[in-house]
C-alpha cells in the first residue's frame, strides 16, 4: 500500500505521470466534445477539478465510516456514483443561490460532470491504492488539474488544426483521438520521474 508516498508527490504524479485522461483514458466523452472550444474547455476543466477534489474527500468519508464498518464494499460503485450525482446537484443549487454570475459561467457545465467517468475513476483508484484522507484530496485535486491540462492542451491543438489539411475520413473524432494518443505518448515521458504503480 502507498502509505509512504507523500501527498505533494501524489499531486504531481496525478497531473503528469498518471494523468487520469491521457494514461488511464477516463473522461473521454466530454473531452472529445468540448475540446472544440477553448473557453468551454477552461470552464469545464475548472468545474471538473472542483468536483473531483470535493467528491474524493466525500467518498473517502463515506467509504471509511459507512461502507467498511457495515461490510458494504460490494456496493461501492453504486454508492460512489450516487454521492457524486447528489453532490453535483447540491453544488448547482448552492451556486445558483449564492452567485448567479458564477452559475451562468460555470453552472452550465455541472450537468456534464455527472456523466464524466473520470470522477468515479479517481474515487475508485484511491480506494484501491489505499490512500489516507490527505492523499485522497491531493489525488483528487491533481487528477482534476491533470484533466484540465489535457483538455486545454487539446483545445489549443484543435484550434491550430482548423486550417490543417486533415484527411476527410479522419475529420472530427478520428483526428482528435489520434492527437490524444500522441499526447499520451508524450506524457509517458514523465513516467520515468516517478514510479506510481
Amino acid at each position: 500500500m502507498d502509505g509512504g508516498v507523500s501527498a505533494p508527490v501524489i499531486l504531481f504524479a496525478a497531473i503528469f505521470t498518471n494523468n487520469i485522461l491521457l494514461v488511464n483514458f477516463l473522461g473521454m466523452c466530454s473531452f472529445l466534445a468540448i475540446s472544440k472550444d477553448l473557453k468551454s474547455s477552461i470552464g469545464l476543466g475548472l468545474a471538473v477539478t472542483f468536483v473531483m477534489t470535493c467528491t474524493t474527500g466525500l467518498n473517502y468519508v463515506v467509504n471509511t465510516f459507512i461502507l467498511i464498518p457495515y461490510g458494504l464494499e460490494q456496493f461501492r460503485f453504486i454508492v460512489f456514483i450516487i454521492v457524486i450525482a447528489a453532490f453535483v446537484q447540491l453544488l448547482e443549487m448552492i451556486i445558483e443561490r449564492v452567485s448567479p454570475l458564477l452559475y451562468v459561467v460555470l453552472g452550465v457545465f455541472l450537468p456534464l460532470i455527472t456523466v464524466n467517468c473520470a470522477i468515479l475513476g479517481v474515487c475508485l483508484f484511491m480506494i484501491i491504492r489505499g490512500y489516507s484522507f490527505l492523499q485522497c484530496i491531493a489525488f483528487g485535486f491533481g487528477g482534476g488539474v491533470g484533466w484540465w491540462l489535457a483538455i486545454v492542451a487539446m483545445a489549443g491543438i484543435r484550434e491550430r488544426m482548423k486550417n490543417a489539411p486533415v484527411p476527410k475520413a479522419l475529420a472530427g473524432p478520428g483526428i482528435t483521438l489520434i492527437v490524444a494518443g500522441l499526447m499520451a505518448l508524450s506524457f509517458m515521458a514523465f513516467s520515468g520521474m516517478i514510479q506510481m504503480q
Binding site: I66, Y70, L72, F75, I78, V79, I82
Partner: peptide
Amino acid sequence: GLLILAGI
C-alpha cells in the same frame, strides 16, 4: 446491505 443502500 440492500436495506442500508436504500437507506443511503
